[in-house]
Amino acid sequence: MTEPAIAVDAVSKAFPLPEARMRTVREAVLHPWRSGAPSRLQVLDAISFEVGRGETLGIMGRNGSGKSTLLKLLAGIYRPDSGRIAVGGPVTPILELGVGWSQDLDAVDNILLLGTLMGLPLAEAQAAIPEILAFASLERFARVPLKHYSSGMAVRLAYSVAFRAARDILLLDEVFAVGDVGFRSRCEERFRSLRRSGRTMIVVSHDPRTIRDFCDRALVIDAGRIQREGDPAGVVERYLELVAQAPQAAGASA
């Protein structure tokens, strides 16, 4: 067995709670003695797992259980407080897709911006514009600034760019939860073909069908720890148990 595509070793991550953090120069000057010994929220607590090359791993968990934080750590957007993450190849994260466009720019400019930052060479990004617009069925709105897009349109565009820029390792957050039926089936098609071509994937989803149908293996996170890891069906079961246990506790967003 060669080294895994992703190895996560005892990774922890906590965030200072926003109200405990000194946020302005004014406060820092007015209360220099009030040191911020902030209360921290432990989001991930010594998590370890591995993903083999070409494997698809599903991750489940209630809202606020740390799934998205985990993906951002894997993508290199966040740094772990402790522990080690080894990633054996370039990563394409597909996260936070509804938000985060340059609202005043049109689709073409946004494709170029996001595409190049996701690792597409500029020339390739330019050549791929028609294909990306077609995949999102947004050809008619190519020159419309993103602020006039519906949220569904914006998400479709983001998927199209990310799927086109996909590199060795893909991180997908709620991948099939958006768009109309046609778009979703196109996404599923693309997902399957990427899987066939040997990419390593991590899929975060609340949808049992997605986890059962698309993943080789899965794990469920709760309270910052892995509650169960193994075959998708068992993980889905555990997840549904967790959801049933404390439906009222699902407060924070994912």
Binding site: T2, A5, G88, D109, P121, L122, D168
Partner: peptide, 29 residues
């Protein structure tokens, strides 16, 4: 045999291209 398949040749970031796109974006906005 089980070595990672070099998909899409995984190029490094196209720094110049990305920089140019960013500058263009700033100018447009």
């Amino acid at each position: 045999r089980s070595a990672p398949t070099p998909l899409a040749a995984a190029p490094r970031l196209d720094y110049l291209g990305a920089a140019w796109t960013l500058v263009r974006t700033d100018f447009r906005i």
